[in-house]
Design a protein around this nucleic acid. Structure first.
Lengths: 197, 197
DNA sequence: GAGGCTACCAAACAAGTGTTTGCTATGGCA
DNA sequence: TGCCATAGCAAACACTTGTTTGGTAGCCTC
């Protein structure tokens, strides 16, 4: 991104763009990409539809920007979680899962956009771009799983997708109150952790 | 395709309705509900857009019909799987999971529609109707899980959503060839099955 | 105080949307 | 033969969609 001018944000410069991103994230999450119109988004921040095109060159461009911000939140959360965790691999992956869940469940609207099942409804040409972004994030978890003391017959790739499935599925049933992200992460890891190890 | 029946089937009674359902399922699965137009669906079976309204009274009505057919497939598959399974609870749930996966992964386009993450993009008023349909299906699994000899501290509800997450997530990574639905079901159940029990 | 840049308005554009309406060709039944 | 339900055509309806274009008020610099 071009960031060479340090003063120009004096008047609603970057704020308006950010407001549009927030509104777009909220409405995409609520009604889907196709279900949300430029007029909806612009209207939510008190703008006319045409004015949005000053900040984003197309609706797809806006979506990509929202998506990037979503992935960045996940990455920041597990980076922070892993910094404060000791060497025990089970503890490390549980912390990463808890961080993942905290963004997924309480991280606002941006997190919803990142869900691959959500992404499937997007215009096809942008799919490779978005998936590459996501793959990079998942690699953090692959490393953590590689360090786990699992029974030798365990397929670690299947382990990853099983874990990811459990985690991401929580979006469909989670309601605030009953369980915290930490509870869920602990329970899931507990189920997957063989008693002998 | 039409080897022995040349043109006469252009006016088939129930066949045309079924053809519309198939086309709708395929296009909903590929491009989403909003991304698919009545013209697309009607055109796919060689009909004009208005003619579709003879068979379905609205686009939402068509979607509900597709969804119902999707859920019915899942139910038929696990009903059949459970009939031929012995009394061992772990064996029973593994069979149910394998049946669920075989529909989810190789069951064609109808299966995709049932995914809740997909359903979230549907018009809001129909959500309760669709979810009730799905809850009924999930209850089969709740019964199977209730019969499992799990450690006493295990939250069986979290066990269910963890398992369901792993299973349904497979839609996002599965490609034909490497694993069969049976392989995946066996591996997932194996991971969740504590060695001591 | 002239020029230029930022951020936006106002209005239109062509294309596509779900749906309704009136009509018609077909085939079975009395 | 006449009747009637079936299954679909043809054309329009009112509306929404993403996007473009031309203009302009306010600020900053020279």
């Amino acid at each position: 991104m071009a960031a060479s001018a340090p003063k120009i944000e004096a008047r609603g410069g970057e704020n308006r763009r950010e407001a549009l991103l927030d509104a777009a994230a909220a409405m995409f999450a609520a009604k889907g990409y196709d279900g949300t119109s430029i007029r909806d988004i612009a209207g939510a921040v008190g703008m006319l539809p045409g004015s949005l095109y000053y900040h984003f060159k197309s609706k797809e461009d806006l979506l990509i920007a929202v998506y990037r911000k979503g992935v960045a939140r996940f990455e920041a959360a597990i980076d922070e979680a892993l910094e404060t965790t000791g060497g025990d691999p089970w503890q490390a992956i549980e912390a990463a899962c808890a961080a993942h869940l905290s963004i997924l469940l309480d991280g606002g609207d941006y997190a919803r956009i990142v869900n691959p099942e959500f992404v499937r409804s997007f215009p096809g040409e942008m799919l490779p771009t978005l998936n590459a972004e996501r793959d990079r994030y998942e690699r953090h978890f692959e490393k953590l799983i590689a360090a786990l003391p699992l029974p030798p017959e365990t397929d670690r790739w299947l382990f990853k997708v099983a874990l990811f499935g459990s985690l991401n599925w929580s979006q469909t049933w989670y309601r605030k109150g009953r369980y915290t992200p930490g509870d869920i992460a602990g329970a899931f890891i507990g189920m997957l952790r063989q008693k002998g190890a």
